[in-house]
Nucleic acid binder design. Structure first.
Lengths: 226, 226
DNA sequence: ACAAAAGTGTTAAGAATACACCCATGT
DNA sequence: ACATGGGTGTATTCTTAACACTTTTGT
């Protein structure tokens, strides 16, 4: 164990979900370097010796997508992916974070070099081919999100501060990829005590106004079943 | 991104569970090097540039505990733990694997240098202070195991090939840290179709013999609720 | 005979599912 | 008037949880 010990390539990637038009989307950028120049990929970067994986994630999100982690709720424990042959320079390990965003507009950010980064939230249903093993990382993250959504209130991170019950239901449906019964959903979600009415009502469109809800203060992660 | 880019210290640790006398235990070794020389720790080592985390895990298990990964069922995705200050040499990341063992006797293995490694399965209820942040890694892993045990058949990895229903129930109780009702447990576990009787019966002790069961062939990970 | 684990059913409460109509609004 | 999403209740099925006694063996 000497000072010259060489470690594998270590990178961090963020799998940032957001709802766009009731579709579950994931944040992608176009790679500005080889390998996979021009291909779509999760925002990510090398972790250097003097920064934590979390710091590297924050840096790459700002640099490549213009999004600050203060706009994102990171969930859970980071996962490690071994990906042999993912990089021509040798064996590489990536640490994947899962995050939830709401109302975030990625903006092209031009840093030291201004190659394209072209950040976009892309619907999971219409993903292009992704660089590296990022497709399987996205699938893994989506699966985790499904499990969490069905058994906790994490979806708060995907919704605006206030919302109607139909919006909430749509969020669940988008994440779980299945339809829910309106009456059963309302019964369930109301009985959990996670949300409370704001007293306001949303008067939009040619139909009856809907009551507006918010997640209760101090409703930390709780477990239930949808 | 040049060839001299320096990455954080990258290590791998195994959280290997085994049942000993109906208690859930985890495999620990005594550290043979600074830092934490002599302290109890999870078996683990540095991952070098030309090996995968999985290979490093296999190597450290053999070297420090004499256990081969063929004797272990690794479960799930590896987790990454950022642990600032975990190593005096700088920021370090460890990749934790969770594994299940049965009937495994760790043996002291003496490799290139023969410092103590002293591998033992230690009851979770009686853990000593652990090196680094290993205590929180163990707690995290135990939590994952509880969730998996309550919702799948992973516990197969902790049990002998054949077992009585009471042994199976004890395994669940040890992992979940709570008592289960015998009749409800049997009803449930039988209805899941995960196990089948071997036709044999175990005639041990001054009491009625018990039927012996095994997990069904091809019963890959399945989900249920205990 | 007795100690010790094996084995077995029923009931009650709660949770999940399936299902159809009226309401309030804007155009 | 009509189109649109907002809102509500009940019956059925399934799942869970609580609970105690008889059986078979070894000593």
């Amino acid at each position: 164990m000497n000072e010259d010990f060489e470690f594998p390539i270590l990178t961090v990637d963020g799998v940032i979900f957001q709802l766009v038009n009731d579709e579950l989307c994931v944040l992608l950028t176009q790679r500005a370097f080889e390998p996979f120049l021009g291909a779509w990929a999760l925002p990510g970067m090398y972790i250097s010796k003097d920064q934590t994986s979390r710091e590297a994630l924050e840096l790459t999100l700002i640099q490549k997508t213009g999004i600050s982690t203060s706009q994102i709720e990171l969930i859970e424990q980071p996962y490690a992916f071994d990906a042999p042959q993912r990089d021509p320079r040798g064996y590489a390990v990536t640490i994947a974070y899962i995050g939830l965003a709401r109302d975030v507009m990625p903006g092209v950010h031009r840093g030291a070099d201004d190659k394209i980064q072209n950040p976009h939230f892309t619907s999971l249903a219409k993903l292009p081919k992704l660089a590296y093993d990022h497709m399987s990382i996205v699938q893994f993250a989506h699966n985790r999100l499904k499990i969490l959504a069905a058994s906790s209130n994490v979806l708060a991170g995907l919704l605006p501060r206030t919302f109607t019950l139909l919006q909430l239901q749509s969020a669940y449906e988008a994440v779980l990829s299945r339809k829910l019964d309106k009456r059963n959903f309302r019964k369930k979600i109301q009985s959990l005590g996670l949300i409370e009415t704001t007293g306001e009502s949303s008067r939009e469109g040619a139909h009856r106004p809907a009551q507006v809800y918010r997640f209760c203060n101090g409703s930390t992660l709780r477990h239930h079943t949808i």
